[in-house]
Design a protein around this nucleic acid. Structure first.
Lengths: 350, 350
DNA sequence: AATCTTTCCGTGAACGTGCACGGAATTAAA
DNA sequence: TTTAATTCCGTGCACGTTCACGGAAAGATT
């Protein structure tokens, strides 16, 4: 911006009477330079409006920056598999070459597998790490270690009460619950509705959907104080039992027309829903999993609120890459992706 | 992918017994190389799985690629101003340095201004051009000239019946009308509704909203054949007259509750709407203009269907940059951005 | 056979930065 | 004063491409 003719490291050297070696040292502040020279170079950088040439830099360094992704792994078509797709997206052809990405997956229900993944991650000697935290304590240990080695890390999906993170990319969970309730009711009074929830393990994992649930309930209570919110708990591993629970519920509440789920597994209900069609029913779930979108276009599901986990991951990686390669800090530390509403009429273009 | 150790231009030279100069010539196929050598080099490229090093390439070329954007210009906060924001977005820090962008604006109601802008554009000697076409004939002349100079161009927003374009980024107009109708009615039967339309100039400009209107009407006729669709024509330059027209309409149709507009100017109706509140009214418009979003969060407008013109432009520029810098062709030629539904409950995170 | 074209190809200097190496300048220790 | 340690700094090669320049080889023309 300052000078039209892009100034180089050599210009700074000439201007200060130093050599490019010294300039290089202050640019990467790795010491071995006197206070006087340091100040002179800094001033020259300001005056000339110097900006490093990324291409020359990348070329000289010979690439090889590793960004590690520490993220749960699930079945193909699942939420985390969808998110994993964002890694390719981030490897934009123009930006690639210099950075590579490695995915260290772990079982979201098993702390030990996280620790194992973290060890492997550690061995790969990454320049930056993306973390989707599931277990608070274990993750805090990891981030502490990263901080002590000055390795930047960004959170995705869930944020921990940790202060050293470079950035966070996620969804505004409370608001997403609010939005979900609005989509479910269409803004029209409802007497009773059903929320299907998944039984959580006893382990104290971080569960972001509690905020979503709060937003949902607040909307209902604010708009329709008389509405009764029923709950049915299911176990994803035991579908027959889950369907039996639904049968039982609708036996005693045949008039309930609205069904919501707060995680990405609404597709689990689809077979049952399609065997039990109901006039005027509305079903709202979350996230653009392939199975969910199919149910959407068949009309079984009315709407999906999407947070695009792949975009979140891609943005996280990009922020990390900019930090590592250019030393640039993200504009905002906490970034909330926008919530998209998917219906059968706009699902085709996803 | 083929070889782990990234192969270079020099590897190819050694393998073929030629020199890097020759290899370079076939890589950019600018002739001056015998058939035999050409084939040999091509084979070696295949065998080694050679991929050019973008950084070295950019560095050597010394940057300075110009992408010209030939796009209408309107008032601040207008549709095209929003789109223009995508230019910055495209200048991703990691990708920048090599390409610069220049915007050549024109008056969307004046063919002559397009021609003038095209001349300026031509003088800037661009390596690629993004075009948002408004006038068919004049634009076809421009693209013909571009083709004769082998300058790639991509269409944005509207596509012309032109075969030489590199890519197109736009919205599925017909489907967006369909979606709009669904959002307006909520899927529930409606007896009558109002469409507010803008008087078009007589000039034969390309007007993509006719497709949108078709999609809208088809939805209505398919779902609610008894519904009457009323039209009110307004002139954006004469708001008082427009409001008078609305007064007149609702005088004779007091029961009509749903209002739609097919372009981005729904905000023009907002003052009138807020002076004439009506219980149970639904208003649906298009595009995330600042004024529209404010009306949304106040509840005056019920929903907006957004096509993110800025993203379209950013994607277009990116595709062009990849073509110019890397010689890479986009995966798909016709790209439809997804349609986002905005309500007052998810507008905050845009 | 000599000269002139034409076609093809190799050479070498940039591009701007990173980094290892060694050496100068300064200060401390003898 | 000499030597050793320390702090600071300059030199020069490497990274993989691009491109202008000049020249060899082959063919065409006398």
């Amino acid at each position: 911006m300052a000078n039209k003719a892009k100034s180089t490291i050599l210009d700074i050297a000439r201007l200060t009477g130093l050599s490019k070696g010294t300039v290089d040292r202050v640019l990467h502040n790795r010491g071995e330079v006197s206070r006087k020279s340091y100040d002179a170079v800094m001033k020259a950088i300001q005056d000339l409006g110097y900006e490093p040439n990324v291409y020359a830099s990348m070329l000289a360094r010979g690439g090889s920056h590793l960004i590690a992704v520490l993220m749960p792994e699930d079945e193909p078509g699942g939420f985390w598999s969808l998110a994993a797709g964002g890694m390719e997206k981030a490897l934009d052809p123009l930006a690639s070459g210099g950075v590579s990405i490695e995915h260290f997956g772990y079982d979201p229900t098993d702390v030990e597998s996280l620790k194992a993944a973290a060890r492997k991650m550690w061995d790969s000697n990454p320049s930056g790490v993306v973390i989707a935290p599931m277990f608070r304590e274990a993750t805090l240990q990891i981030t502490a270690a990263l901080r002590s080695k000055d390795i930047p890390y960004v959170f995705v999906d869930t944020k921990l009460d940790d202060l050293g993170y470079l950035a966070f990319f996620g969804m505004p969970m409370y608001r997403s619950g609010y939005l979900c309730a609005d989509q479910l009711t269409g803004g029209l009074p409802v007497k009773s509705l059903l929320v299907v929830r998944v039984q959580r393990d006893v382990q104290r994992m971080s569960d972001p959907t509690v905020d979503r649930r709060a937003g949902f309930l607040d909307y209902i209570h604010e708009h329709f104080p008389d509405c009764v919110v029923h709950n049915v708990l299911i176990n994803p591993a035991d579908i027959p039992a889950a369907e039996a629970a639904l049968d039982e519920f609708f036996e005693s509440h045949p008039d309930t027309r609205q069904i919501a789920m707060f995680n990405s597994r609404i597709h689990l209900l689809v077979p049952w829903l399609e065997r039990h069609p109901q006039r005027g029913r509305r079903v709202v779930g979350f996230d653009n999993l392939e199975a969910n979108m199919q149910a959407l276009s068949r009309g079984t599901v009315s709407a999906l609120v999407c947070q695009h986990p792949d975009d979140q991951l891609a943005l996280a990686i990009k922020a990390l890459a900019e930090r590592i390669v250019l030393g640039k800090y993200p504009a905002r530390r906490d970034n909330f992706v926008h919530m998209d509403i998917l219906t059968r009429y706009n699902v085709d273009f996803y």
